[in-house]
């Protein structure tokens, strides 16, 4: 079935290393997206007309443009036009953060405006000042709504890292392809064995994360 190839030499280690690259890029991007997304979402909830228009354009660009095109623009385009050479991993992190910030920002905005005004007022009525109201009443509620939603974004980012092999990064899918190339002659079924393993690796990473999200959603709903 082609699985025997995995036990030859360092093949399996190379797959795991590829997975490590994919996870590193997605985790760094998620971290950046959460921080910037919180700022963007808060700005968007202020309903300033200029911010609203700009963020609308930004969100539309992210929704419309395929991630692969963004990757090509940053990795190939910037180096030619602006003469700056951005390394492949950095390009991937820039594009994923650009995408993630837009999605997180939209989630944060949605959570912020979903907290009814009366929650603020009943806190003020108890003599809590604005800072305490945010700290003890509003932000804890937002985080509870946000975490399950952002976990969903994390799993989508991990899956989408399969695109970054197009700019030359050896992540898990690319590592798999290389193993297949090298072993095609000796084991004809290698493609099935390797891709099935890649599938399993993605599953093993994403499934616990999505279970966690389901659990938190239930607990906090």
């Amino acid at each position: 079935m082609g699985f025997e190839v995995l036990f030859k030499g360092t093949n399996f280690i190379r797959l795991l290393e590829g997975l490590g690259v994919a996870l590193r890029i997605s985790m760094i991007s998620v971290g950046i997206s959460i921080v910037l997304g919180m700022i963007l979402g808060t700005l968007m909830s202020l309903k300033n007309p200029v911010i609203t228009v700009l963020s609308r354009i930004y969100l539309e660009i992210v929704h419309i443009m395929p991630q692969m095109v963004l990757l090509f623009i940053v990795f190939f385009g910037f180096s030619k036009v602006m003469g700056i050479n951005i390394p492949a991993e950095a390009s991937a992190i820039i594009v994923f953060s650009f995408w993630g910030t837009a999605e997180m920002g939209d989630l944060v905005r949605g959570c912020l405006i979903s907290i009814p005004m009366i929650q603020y007022e009943s806190s003020y009525a108890l003599g809590m000042r604005r800072s305490k109201t945010y700290l003890y009443v509003i932000i804890p509620q937002i985080i509870r709504r946000l975490i399950p939603l952002s976990i969903n974004l994390i799993t989508r980012m991990i899956k989408t890292t399969s695109l970054i092999m197009m700019i030359g990064i050896v992540e898990v899918l690319k590592a798999g392809q290389q193993i297949i190339e090298a072993n095609r002659r000796t084991s004809p079924h290698v493609a099935f064995g390797v891709f099935a393993t890649v599938f399993l690796l993605y599953f093993l990473v994403c499934w616990p994360i999505s279970q966690l999200s389901k659990y938190l959603e239930k607990r906090w709903s």
């Binding site: 009814p116 009366i118 929650q119 007022e121 009943s122 806190s123 009525a125 009443v137 804890p140 509620q141 509870r144 906090w220």
Partner: peptide, 13 residues
């Protein structure tokens, strides 16, 4: 000054 509202508005978390 204590105030109680129509929609109770306890903190859900």
């Amino acid at each position: 000054i204590g105030m109680v509202f129509q929609s109770y508005d306890l903190f859900p978390h």
